[in-house]
Amino acid sequence: MSSINAGLEESLRKKIIDEPQMVLDDPNVMRALVAGNERSMGSNIVDMRGLAMERLETRLDRLEDTHRSVIAAAYENLAGTNQIHRAVLRLLDPESFAGFMEVLRGDFCDILRIDAMALILETTQEEAGAAVERVGDVLKFTEAGFIDGYLSQGRSFGGERSVLLRQIDTAPARIYGEKSASLRSEACLKLDLGSGRLPGLLVLGAEDPGQFTPQHGTDLLSFFAGVFERSMRRWLS
C-alpha cells in the first residue's frame, strides 16, 4: 500500500487541497487538528498559538450568542410594535361608545395576545350605589380610590407612572371574572380621563407569568395607554 493511501485517501486528500476552506470553516475539524498537533509535540511544549486560538474561539462564541440575542430582541420589539399599531387602529374604528366597547369585547385580546382584559371606571360615592359591576364583562365600575389601592397593594406606586407590569399569584374575580384563576401576570395602564374626572384603569391579564414583568420595557404600552385614554375622553365629553 502506498504511503499516500496509508495516511490519507487520495480522494479525500485531493478534496482538501482543492477546497481547504471546507476544513478551515469547520471548528470541530480544526480543533481536532490542533489537538493532534499538540500531542505530536509532547507534553513539555506549550503551543501559544493553540491557546490563542482557543481564546479567540471562546470570544467568537460569545459574540455569536450576543448577536443572536440582539437579533431576537429586535424581532420581538418589531412584533410588539406591530401589535400595538394594530390595536390602535382598531380603537380608531368605532363611531360610538357602544361600538368602542364592542371592539374591546371582540378580537382585542387576540390582537394584544392576552388572555383577559378589563376597563375599570371609578364613580363618586353618590353614584356608587347606582353603579353596576358587570362581572365577566369588560367594563367594571368601582368606588373612588379603588384604582390607586389596586395599583399600590400596600406598596408605593409613583404617581407619574402610567404603566405597571407585575406577576400575580391570584387575580381578583371582581376584575377578571371567571378567568381570574388562570392568570399569572398583568399590565395595569392607568388612564387620565381629563380634568374633573376620576381616573380609569385598563388591565391586561396573561396566563404566562413571563409575559408582563417589571424587567420589561413600558414604552409601547405607555404609548398605547395615551391613545386609549384619549379615545375614552372622546366618548366621555
Results as ranks from 00 to 15, higher is better:
D169Q: 13
K179C: 06
G154A: 14
I114Y: 04
S237A: 06
M53F: 01
R155T: 15
A130N: 14
D110Y: 10
Q167G: 13
S231T: 14
T213N: 06
R233V: 11
T58S: 04
E95G: 13
L24R: 13
R234G: 05
G80F: 03
R233S: 06
F224M: 02
D65A: 04
P172V: 12
I16T: 09
A130T: 15
V103Y: 02
A181H: 14
L63G: 06
D47I: 08
I168M: 09
R49V: 05
T142F: 05
Y150N: 13
M48H: 12
L204I: 02
E57K: 05
R105K: 13
L104A: 01
L183K: 01
A225L: 01
G217L: 01
D192V: 12
F223Q: 03
A171Q: 12
R39H: 05
K179E: 08
I147L: 01
V70G: 00
N28L: 04
P94T: 13
E127S: 14
V103P: 03
Y176H: 11
L60F: 04
A118M: 06
R39K: 12
E76F: 01
D93A: 05
E64H: 03
L92P: 08
L236E: 09
F108Q: 05
A206N: 05
G177I: 14
S195C: 02
S180E: 11
Y75F: 04
R166D: 07
N44H: 13
E102P: 01
E102G: 02
G106L: 07
R184L: 09
E122T: 13
I17C: 04
I147D: 03
G149E: 14
A32L: 10
R230K: 10
G149R: 15
A74K: 07
E57L: 12
C109Y: 02
L24V: 07
S185A: 09
I175C: 00
P94A: 08
D61Q: 06
V70K: 03
F228Y: 05
S3E: 13
G200D: 06
S182W: 10
A131N: 11
V70R: 00
S182P: 05
R55I: 07
M117Q: 13
M53D: 04
D110I: 12
S40G: 02
R113F: 01
G158T: 15
D61F: 02
A131L: 06
I168T: 12
R174Q: 13
D107I: 15
F141Y: 15
V70I: 11
G196N: 06
R161M: 13
S40D: 10
S40P: 00
Q21D: 13
Q125F: 11
K15R: 15
G99C: 05
R105A: 03
N82Q: 07
A79T: 04
R134W: 09
V23R: 02
P199C: 09
T81F: 02
L202A: 00
Q211K: 07
R161I: 14
I4T: 14
Q21F: 09
L221K: 00
A225T: 07
A73L: 03
M41Y: 08
I120S: 01
D47T: 07
S195W: 00
T123F: 02
D25L: 07
V138S: 02
R49T: 05
L165Y: 14
E207Y: 00
M53C: 01
S182E: 14
E133I: 15
A144P: 08
M41P: 03
M22S: 08
G106W: 11
A6M: 15
